[in-house]
Design a protein around this nucleic acid. Structure first.
Length: 116
DNA sequence: AATGTGACATACC
DNA sequence: TGGTATGCCACAT
């Protein structure tokens, strides 16, 4: 392909993974970053999510939380409660802006998508 | 080219 | 227990 691959490859990869997150599950930025091969690029994942609002595809950014299961990114949603509301709509319980049973609903792409 | 930034993660005080 | 500091990497200006 073109050399401009890396231009959107990283972001697009994030979108891919995020789009693969099953409803009712959540994952962490670090998990996605690690799946992409850049375990330390966890921040870029969040950044990609930020761009996801401008992305053509609907990215379930609400299913992406930090390592602590905290809805750190809710502030970036059109409505802060939108994120929590969507998660609850998928069966995820939110308490104090944190995902209840986080380990139970945690979806690790490295485990589920370790198809490489 | 250099500097700044950011929805994280980890370590240290 | 919580704030501060640093690392880390890719994007924006």
């Amino acid at each position: 392909m073109s050399e401009s691959d890396r231009d959107t490859n990283f972001f697009e990869s994030v979108y891919e993974v995020a789009a693969l997150i099953p409803a009712g599950r959540v994952t962490s930025y670090g998990a996605i970053a690690r799946y992409l091969g850049s375990a330390r690029s966890s921040r870029m994942v969040g950044w990609a999510m930020n761009n996801s609002f401008s992305s053509d595809r609907n990215i379930p950014a609400h299913r992406v939380v930090n390592r602590n299961g905290s809805l750190t990114g809710k502030h970036h949603f059109p409505n802060e409660h939108e994120m929590q509301r969507r998660l609850e709509a998928e069966g995820i319980k939110i308490m104090d802006d944190q995902v209840v049973n986080f380990s139970d609903v945690f979806w690790d792409p490295n485990l589920e998508l370790k198809v490489l």
